[in-house]
Design a protein around this nucleic acid. Sequence first.
RNA 1: GCGGGGGUUGCCAAGUGGUUAAAGGCGCAGGGCUUAGGACCCUGUCACGAAGGUGUUCGCGGGUUCGACUCCCGCCUCCCGCACCA
Length: 951
Amino acid sequence: MNLLESYSAKEIEAKWQKIWEENAVFQPEPDSRRKFFLTIPYPYLNGNLHAGHTRTFTIGDAVARFKRMRGYNVLFPMAFHATGTPIVGLSELIANKDPLIWNVYTKLHGIPEEELSSLNTPEKIVHYFRRSAKLAMQSIGYSIDWRREFTTTDPAYSKFIEWQYGILRRLNYVVKGSHPVRWCPHDKNPVEDHDILKGEDATIMDFALIKFKMGDKVLPCATLRPETLFGVTNLWLNPTVNYVVARVNDETWIVSREACEKLTFTDRNVSFVSEISGAELIGKTVTNPLTGTEVLILPADFVDPDNGSGIVMSVPAHAPYDFLALRDLYDKDLSEFGITADLRAIKFISLIESPGYGELPAVEAVDELKVKDQNDPKAEEATKMVYRREFHGGVLKANTGRYAGIAVSKIKDVLLADLIEQGIAEIFYEFSETPVICRCGTRCVIMMVRDQWFLEYSDPEWKARVLKCLSKMEIIPEEFRVEFENKVDWLKDKACARRKGLGTHLPWDKEWLIESLGDSTIYMAYYILAKYVNAGMKIDRLPPEFFEYIFMNNGRAEDVASLTGIPQETVQQIHDDFAYWYPVDLRTSGKDLVANHLLFFLYHHVAIFPESLWPKAIAVNGFVSLEGQKMSKSKGPLLTLRQAVAENGADVTRLYILGNAEYTQDVDWRNDGVVSTRGQLERFYNLAREILTDSSIEESAPLSLIDRWMLSRLHRRIAEATEAMENIQTRRALQSAFYLLYNDLRWYQRRGGKNQLRRVLSAWVRLMAPFTPHVCEELWAEMGEGYVSLAEWPAADAAFIDEEAERAEKLLEETLKDVEEIVKVTKAQPKKIILYTTPAWKRAVLEMALALAKGGKLDMGALMKEAMASPAVAAHKKDVPKYAQKLAKAAHSLSAEALGLDEFQTLCREKEYLAKALGAPVEVYSADEPGADPKGKSSQAEPGRPAIWIE
RNA sequence: GCGGGGGUUGCCAAGUGGUUAAAGGCGCAGGGCUUAGGACCCUGUCACGAAGGUGUUCGCGGGUUCGACUCCCGCCUCCCGCACCA
């Protein structure tokens, strides 16, 4: 016996991690077994692994270990992600000793100051965190094949990415275009979420910029409701605002100064011509470019020069502000603007029919909310109300010509496209809320990035292939399938190249770096190669032909060998390895990657590989919070993997994180919970040790009832745990394999069971091995052959399911509970307990009732008739109706369970146990022949429920 | 706003039409282990109850059903994603 007297995580875990590594236990090669290729998105190297990573990776490791024990040849590799901008940014901040970063990395990530200050280049950061992450993963005992480790900045990986993008280009999936981004004019860079000081919720909205004409000049109006162009009665300008005349492309525009400034960031050529005051323009007329109508320009205070173009088109029938501003002018003297006409003569144009509103929704909304004028804050509320109701329920009226009858919610994109085609409108981007301020304090604008490379994810044919792939995949949990489908639908073209950061250059346009999500899509294939690269394979020449042969089976090994200088047999072997291991059988990931990485993963696979190599399954899991608080890498709280393992041990960390939540629920990491988990694992170890040291166990002794019961429960637990793990439900698996089985064992021991303990333990240790591999390995060394990590997963054998034994134990347990309840309620001190098991006639009636019951109904009359026909039953005709009625009432839940057991014999046999448990002598009679029955209690006996008399 | 997921007994959390007052864990209480124990074992933990019972519960309000935590409708409420960023 080499087991430590008390459980020591440190000793056990270090020992087995060393043994696994030294003996290459998790380094698979192709063989005749079924293969299982499991991957997890590699972590990004801008910090230490934290509890969130721990969860995703531990689920993956548990599945890998489970599948391995199920007889699969399992490949579980890992790599590291370093391309993109954050690491470059981080190195600059560290080099500058940025106080915030300093604090985060010393306090939250636990990096000593001297070490941190040395991380002043991207390369050093990558090196440091790569090492740190690998140590962390080893310290928690992941069964990773480390021969395949790589980093996305490795030269060979770059060749692989170049090859991939070459294909995508050839397939016309990479195209040039422009797109709007949040932009800081000071930094001259796109602004990312974490770089925003204020306005982080602002989104980029696309307005229609409608070009009203005034002679050869254009007065553009920005609107989110282009359909209302049919109902424009006038324009609004703010007389106090400064407007400018500017050349925009080939036209002359009049817009607010602020709008002109914004236009310079778009993809238009803008040059300032002159200033012009709002007052100068008011009173003039412009032409509605769609309807040709002449409308007057009027003054309004609500017009914000910083919103849109600073010119607003007025649709008083449907826009409360427009109605209010117009009404505000009714009795004003506008002669200073040269306006003498009676504005009451302006006729409102109604163009949207919506339920609950009449002709003029804006007027109704203003009345309903009692909005005073255009400066009343309630005007905003009225606007939102009308907009929402018209958007969701509105339909365009006859005066919108060919758009008549179309729902408002469907019209915007169509109409905008039409207007753009006719040269009447353009798109103008605006933040949904202002201001948006960059971390440097500068106000952000929307910049049109030109000549940008895009992955054309909007391509309908490409989408269709992704959807097809999805339809054939297993999505775990299944509820997430619709989420994936929606996101495919929603996905637009994605900019796939950047100017800054680490990464691979676009092979055909070297100014650009491939964006880092775009280089992380089919790298699972690269794991096959990485083993050879790490072993020193020559990589100075890796032309597309090389990858074509390995991954697409195009070409010949000998040609590739001579092209690359790599030995032909190596080329052949890599090729064969790939053919063996691909496709990916399962990718497990945090739910944060659904709408980006996992989607791209599918997109690129279906673009590049034939259908037979498309991924088979994706499993998604939730996050980890700390004591109810959301974790944050940059703000805290943060728990790193190494910290968790150092404080609690690998197995406890694994057990806690796998056992506390399922699927997309979050795990809440709570110290008191972790402490009690440690206690539970110690208990497991102690019990196992006790069993292993118990020399009185006779394994070959004939099976007693309780032995049979124990084996029956064991095989139920095995079946439950197996099914749960097949569905990647670690929590449910642990409930069965750990907690419930433990309770079963307690009952078994309490009932005097012993001889099957070792047999149960053997299964138990194997059931627990995917979850707590170190302690299981330690225990297995005392009881089994080889590594438990490679042992056979226990098989659930239906032959061990023993209904009779389980029923007997259930009867015993319930009888005990009933007696105890009576004792408790009566507060009696029992001197003697008498049990009467059911009379035979009640069993007979129950049997008849079971046969007669249909669809939850039981005909009482029919039952009585049949019962009385039986002489044995008829002998008790006084008592039969009462019992029959009871059965009829419970017709829907009648069960045959109680009939499968000789209750009298069972209770007689357990008399002693009952007496001991209840602290009083127990007598057992059948109600058919009651011995002592002072109060006639025996008449209450029913199948499954003995009558009880306590003296 | 759009899309997705939730609201269960002190806490965490199972549970998709009847075997559910509702698994399991934690916490708490009582008892045992007869030196102690934050170790271990047993029992209890919605309320009431001197015979195994009864009553009231699963966000709120309706509905379907012999029967609903479970199905349908409406409402309230919480969390997540909405991008060019890993």
